[in-house]
Structure formats: C-alpha cells, structure tokens
Design a protein around this nucleic acid. Structure first.
Lengths: 192, 192
DNA sequence: CGGGTTTAAGAACGGTCGTTCTTGACTGAA
DNA sequence: TTCAGTCAAGAACGACCGTTCTTAAACCCG
C-alpha cells in the first residue's frame, strides 16, 4: 500500500557518487543533490536520514560497484605488467572516478565511518597486488606494508596527480615501471 | 603612521595552513579562521581580500616553507635508500601535513590557481627524485612520467593512506622497497 | 596637543546551509 | 468508496555562510 516511489534508489545513489566525487562532501549542498538526483528533499531524508547518510551510501556503492570489482580484476593478472596495465585501463574517467581518493583526503580524517570504508577499499587493492606478486597481503587494519602496499600507493599517487591535473594517469610510465620492477622479483610470480 | 598591526601576518598564514589542512577549504569557515588565527575579520579581508585569497596564501606558504625545502633535502641524497629514508623522516606530522594532498584532491579540480600551485609542489618532488636517480625529470607542466614520477607517486600514495588512517607512513615498507628497486638500476646512481 | 591614517572591534548584511513541516497526490485493501 | 499508509511537492525553519559596514582605538607627524 501507499504511493509508489517515483525514483530508483540505486540510481540516485550512483548520481550522488558523481556529485560527491566531483565536489567533495562539504562542497555538495543538499540542493545540489535534490537537483542532481531528481529526488525530492523529503524523500531523500526519509530514505537516507541525512546528507551524511547519503554520502556513506554513495561511498559504499562506489566500493561495491567500482573499487572491489576493479581489485578483483587486477588480481586475475598473471604478472606485474598485466596488473598495472589493468590498473591503468580500469581508470574509466567516469563521474565517480577519484571518489575514494577524495574521501580518503577530505572525510576520512574527520569521520571514522568514512575512514573504515576507505581502508576497506585500499586494503582490497593491496590484496589484489599482493595476490599477483605471490606475497602476503598487508596486515588487515594496519598500514600498507611491503611491496604490494608500495605498488598500490604508487597507483593511488598517480591517480591523485591525474585528478589534480585533470588528465588520465600516464599509462606508459606505469608500464615502464612494471618492466623495471619485474626484474627485481627473485622468481617469476605465480610459477604454477 | 596609523595603528600598528596586532598580529604577525606570516604566523596567521601558518595557522590558516593548519586549519585548511585539517578541515579542507569548504570545511573551514571564516569564523574558524578568525578564531584560530586571532585576526579580526576586517583585517583578514583587508590583508587577504577573501577566504580564497587566504587559502592561496596558505598553500603558497606551505609550498615555500614545507614542500620545496623537503624536496631540496631529498635531492641531496646519494642513493635511493637515502632519498626514501629522508622522505619518510620528513613526515613531521605537523598541523599542515597533508595540505598538498588535500588541495590536490579537493580544490585543484575546481580552481586552476590551486591546480598550478599543486603541480608546482608535485613537480618539485619529482625533480628531486629524478636528481637522485640521475635521470631526466618529468616534462614541466606535463603528467609525471618515468621512474621518478612513479616513485613520487608512491610517496604521495603512502602519505594519503597515512592521512586517511591517522597514522604515520610505514618507514620499513618504504625502505624495503628501496632495496628492491636499487637492484634494478643499471648502474649506481650519481656515479661521480 | 590636534589632525590624518591605519587597524581593531563587532554588529549586521543578504544568501545559503542542512533539516523539518504541512499539504495534497497516489496506492492497495476493506 | 472510504480508509489507512506512503510518497511528492514545496514552503519554512533556525543556524551558519562569506562579506561589508560603522565606530572606536592606537599610532605618526606637525
């Protein structure tokens, strides 16, 4: 019973991801969200409780729909060059690109719940890199450690530079680096 | 002539750096600045023109007093391990730590003047890394390229993770990575 | 000591912030 | 067809936003 909803909740959350990724949390007003999502103000508060609730839902969706699948795809690479090639190719430049970066820099220091989501995303990337390298992943909950953490950090840094400059990350730099680094491995990764 | 100033301008800009670094641009109100700087509202607008003007001054100061000196110190390293050791040691955890990161993620995409300052800081870091490696620096104005850009990106990514998690960057990971990578160099850097 | 000039002090501006409230439209069930 | 329940529509709330204005205080100079 009751009047049916005139909007798709998942689509609204996706649109919110784009707005938050582009303008940040503080830089996105509820009016921006109401206009961009096509969802009425009252419905927004009914469904998500608050602006912060919608932000958390958007970040959660970004992790589930973008970051974690990307990490899973990275983990299927058979060598380092393949992994980094996929990492660069995964940069779709879509509206939510960089949401994780922005959340890490802007909201994670002030919002523990955001920090936990960010850590989840970053840990997944580290785990994928570690899987390809055949080494142990970083300890859960702890800071990035080891080569996998460093490589993940490098990809993060490249994407941050790309975001700041408004250009896609430089693929050739990543691939050249992969060639260099592959030589340092004591044995071919994934010998099986 | 005229009544003398009751505040030190450089100290005010430094305090502003801390606030902007901690809370971001949109997250820091003019009231926050007036309280945190101990500078009267009118004086703030007289000297800096606007909140954005103060932000640009604070970022400029952060570059001049923190980032560029750090980059210069990095460039004096004689090998990769020394450079990365210094890079980690340079993380003072002070109030303005991460200002460059936050500016890159939050304001650079929307404010070209911020983007130019951010690019200046990142380029200086790349140049320092390149100097130690004995390779050419990234092309000015362009995206990071080559090994130096990758290494700089890794340091950026590590610091971003540290900022998100509220912990200092993991020194041992960086140093372990330096040992691995040093083996890939075709010759000892800085042969002279 | 009395102008001239610069800053400090703080009230006040219109606008926008996140949030809530009131009213009417639409639904399935009685 | 009435009822109870959910959502849409939009006005309205107090609080805060960045900015400006007015007035008093502190200095140099003559």
């Amino acid at each position: 019973m009751g009047r049916p909803r005139a909007f798709d909740e998942d689509e609204a959350v996706r649109a919110a991801s784009g707005l938050f990724a582009a303008q940040g949390y503080e830089g996105t007003s509820v009016d921006d969200l109401v206009n961009g999502l096509g969802v009425h103000r009252g419905s927004l508060y009914k469904v998500f409780g608050s602006k912060r609730g919608l932000y958390l839902a958007a970040l959660r969706r970004h992790l589930d729909q973008e970051v974690l699948p990307t990490a899973a795809a990275l983990a299927t690479a058979t060598d380092l060059a393949g992994l980094l090639t996929r990492a660069v190719a995964a940069y779709d430049g879509g509206p939510a690109a960089g949401f994780l970066l922005l959340a890490a820099a802007e909201r994670a220091p002030a919002d523990p719940e955001v920090a936990a989501l960010v850590e989840e995303g970053l840990a997944a990337l580290d785990t994928a890199v570690a899987a390809v390298l055949g080494t142990a992943a970083a300890p859960p909950g702890g800071p990035a450690d080891g080569l996998a953490g460093i490589l993940g950090a490098a990809v993060l840094g490249l994407r941050l530079r790309a975001r700041a400059a408004g250009t896609p990350p430089p693929a050739e730099a990543v691939l050249g680096f992969a060639g260099r680094l592959a030589a340092t491995l004591p044995q071919p990764p994934r010998p099986a």
